[in-house]
Design a protein around this nucleic acid. Structure first.
Lengths: 229, 229
DNA sequence: TGGTCTGCCTTACGACGTAAGGCAGCCGTT
DNA sequence: AACGGCTGCCTTACGTCGTAAGGCAGACCA
């Protein structure tokens, strides 16, 4: 069949692209040296000629995500160069959020890595620039950076996600819910109240986008009163 | 010598206690079925008679942490039953924070688990109760819950930690810092401004406790204006 | 005394990351 | 044209992980 050696050689670039595609499609757990090599039509050990190991591979993924974030931020900054600090930060954070939505594995990876990826510093520098330009002191800018936390990177902590995956049978869930409601009156009331008044334009119970922006505004409002003048 | 069979039998309880001690001392990476078994003077497979596997072990750790959190919350609630909502929530969150400081591995574990541990719901119920009791609508209480995010559990995202561990040599770091400062003027200025005015009572650059409480107040202030009446 | 039960151990398998070395084809040199 | 090195990938192998399957000794009850 010919095609004996027409495969172009591997490269760090090609490996990373393939890794991102794999993780996007099947999640972090599927990212194995052997599996990734198979995806590239190659043996596992061949990857080591282009990457320093599994850790280096993950660093590569992180760098790729950070690059996406910073370029989104550059676009945001270009679009809203003359807007006030709130609008500019909002655009930044929503841009980062779009990146995270494209790569649902990214938050866990970002928070799990031992060191801060160097590329993030330029992103944070831009945030501080916006804040200082908006009239904040460096002290408050610093605290704001901490306060934003992961929101600046486009994700919130979601310790609250409703058991992603593994649907239990409806019967057991029903029973458990009833039992819980008895001991959790306020949570139950909250759920009831929220699901009933459907007169507002959110996407049902727990619209993350709305929550994200609500929290953003909460922080912006809080910061505003720490702004001199 | 003797001591042939004086070892009391294993139990889920005993295994979990040992696991927590191990993880507190040596970190998550050290938590291996074999290693944990060795710590108990037993073979790895013996653990399976008391736990359904590694996942079950992690669930056990999560439950233990959640129990610590809820009992800390109970104590807080008892101490400040008559205080306003802000003081009560602050006490709750700082209590949770103390738990996290005792178990530095807990945040990663909590956020990494697939499902919400059931015990957390009673904790959240208490938060909602406090908010509603403070005059908030269920709608705002819900959003506040999301806004608090991991702060409610006592930790913030710390995407910003300064490369915990692995100290590079001072020379390379110095050079890198100088190079970065050129391209990151605002971050550099922020660091300079913060390190110089040492007239305030924080514990130096990046006092986490102060940041934590600052963010808390930011959110509380923001929420206050969403409170009817 | 003989069974069943309980609690732990032994052995083994497949997956993982990766260290060490081999082998074929291409390159520029002579 | 012959040759030595280099590049790019493969082969083999080791140690570690979680865990499936079954064995074996002592305790307990009939």
């Amino acid at each position: 069949m010919g095609a004996r050696k027409p495969r172009d050689p591997l490269s760090r670039e090609r490996v990373l692209v393939s890794a991102i595609a794999l993780v996007d499609a099947e999640g972090m757990a599927a990212l194995t040296m052997r599996r990734l090599a198979a995806e590239l039509g190659v043996e596992a050990m061949s990857l080591y000629h282009h990457l320093p190991g599994k850790g280096g591979l993950l660093d590569g993924l992180v760098d790729a995500v950070v690059t996406e974030i910073t370029s989104a931020a550059d676009r945001a900054e270009a679009d809203a160069a003359r807007a006030d600090w709130r609008a500019r930060l909002r655009l930044r954070f929503l841009g980062a959020r779009a990146v995270m939505l494209r790569h649902p594995w990214a938050p866990a990876l970002l928070t799990g890595r031992p060191a801060v990826p160097a590329g993030l510093y330029v992103y944070y520098d831009g945030i501080v620039a916006t804040l200082v330009d908006g009239g904040f002191s460096y002290r408050i800018a610093h605290r704001a950076l901490h306060a934003f936390g992961s929101l600046a990177l486009g994700f919130s902590q979601e310790v609250f996600q409703p058991s992603a995956g593994e649907e239990t049978d409806a019967e057991a869930e029903e029973a458990e819910m009833a039992a819980l409601a008895e001991r959790l009156p306020h949570l139950a009331a909250m759920v009831a109240a929220e699901t009933h008044d459907a007169a507002d334009p959110t996407l049902g119970w727990c619209d993350s986008q709305t929550e994200f922006e609500f929290t953003l505004d909460l922080l912006f409002d809080g910061l505003e009163r720490h702004r001199p003048r």
